[in-house]
Design a protein around this nucleic acid. Sequence first.
DNA 1: CTCCGCTGTGTACGCTGTACACCGTAGCGA
DNA 2: TCGCTACGGTGTACAGCGTACACAGCGGAG
Lengths: 235, 235
Amino acid sequence: MATRAIHEAESRGRLSRERVLDAAMTKADTAGLEAVTMRQLAESLHVAPMALYRHVANKDDLVDAMVDVVFGEIGVPSGGGDWKSAMRRRAIAVRDALARHRWAIGLMESRRTPGPANLRHHDAVIGRLRAAGFSIAMAAHAYSALDSYIYGFALTKLNLPFGASDDVGDVAEQMLRPFPIKDYPNLVEFISEHVMQPGYEYGDEFEYGLDLILDALDQTVAPGSETSSDRLPER
Amino acid sequence: MATRAIHEAESRGRLSRERVLDAAMTKADTAGLEAVTMRQLAESLHVAPMALYRHVANKDDLVDAMVDVVFGEIGVPSGGGDWKSAMRRRAIAVRDALARHRWAIGLMESRRTPGPANLRHHDAVIGRLRAAGFSIAMAAHAYSALDSYIYGFALTKLNLPFGASDDVGDVAEQMLRPFPIKDYPNLVEFISEHVMQPGYEYGDEFEYGLDLILDALDQTVAPGSETSSDRLPER
DNA sequence: CTCCGCTGTGTACGCTGTACACCGTAGCGA
DNA sequence: TCGCTACGGTGTACAGCGTACACAGCGGAG
């Protein structure tokens, strides 16, 4: 009884898949995905490592579930407006979710076993495009182009690192330091004249490319006209 | 002496950074990046694990070098033609390199310490755009949009798995099996009417989106005209 | 009251990256 | 020719990983 009481006090009740998932998300968000080990996760839940296996099949199952939580947060493209603004809002929702959960980038589309939120999301986006008059093939084109861009942007932004609040110029300069500057004149100009300028924010590039693609799709799908509600040529 | 002779016969001479790198690339290409462990790598070189550390600082250094080899294979956009076809060729070269080295996807832009081939590549691409009359800001827009798309496509293609020669339809159907079909009508239609059709190849989507972006950039950079050789508006 | 089943535990195995001390040899200066 | 040094390869060891397996304690059903 004493043991039980103490244990309850420490862990605020029994373990559950949801509590495991919550702890994993928090840990990943704050300490990175590499900090999400079964052992560390168990420790932060005040539980033995093997206890987790009563609630997740294995680590892959856990990661699958985490990714599905992110899809859940993204939700589905909300009702109003034309397809273009719906897709624009969705793109930004995805970007924002990936900004909150940087560890999910590169995992979102890579799971061999998509969860329900994942499927619901894809279903809704395709549905939205079809309702706007996209043929199946054209919806595939649009979805592929948009998703590639969105995930790719997140990926390159995550990477080429400019980590959040680091001074971008410092990082860039540091990457170049070991090399003779004269070998990379365009890169040097690019960094000193653009990246290091005050007010530069790589994240701002996102909407430029996004609108580029959305406008191009719009032109393809409704060349000349401005409202589209019928099946239109694929290519 | 006997020992030495045997050892030489097995390993075809001394170890070197290059031999380590070659073995690592081969292993990653054939068995995936997760098979590239210091121990397995050492074994395939007939050498003790710790021997590798005389030639690479640590595993991160090794992976950095592997990524730079991929950039080396991509090369720089070759001379002739307008910027659009140069960028198109580059995009396809990147896609092909990533197809040869699937493990590199997600690593290409993520290394905090880019190698010389990486920098040379970026320098050349920026240089090509600048030479075609792109302002610095416009070059940034174009580069960001293109790279996001290219890497994102590789990422989503790698992922949503349809692994190479698997039957795409089978995989898709299998992903849906655990769920009630009626919950995802658009997805079901999409898969059965499009993805499962004979001749469908997701990889074909790449050039559609690529040309969409290239044409859109072209229109932005030279609205109306068909040859561009001067600085033009950023946005 | 007894028993079953569920949940959490402890131990153990094989794998990972890599620190550290060691040793044989090749190549050099004397 | 000798002796030394520096370098490349080895063996051992440690901490940390995912997880298989046998077990224990408790709650609820019969």
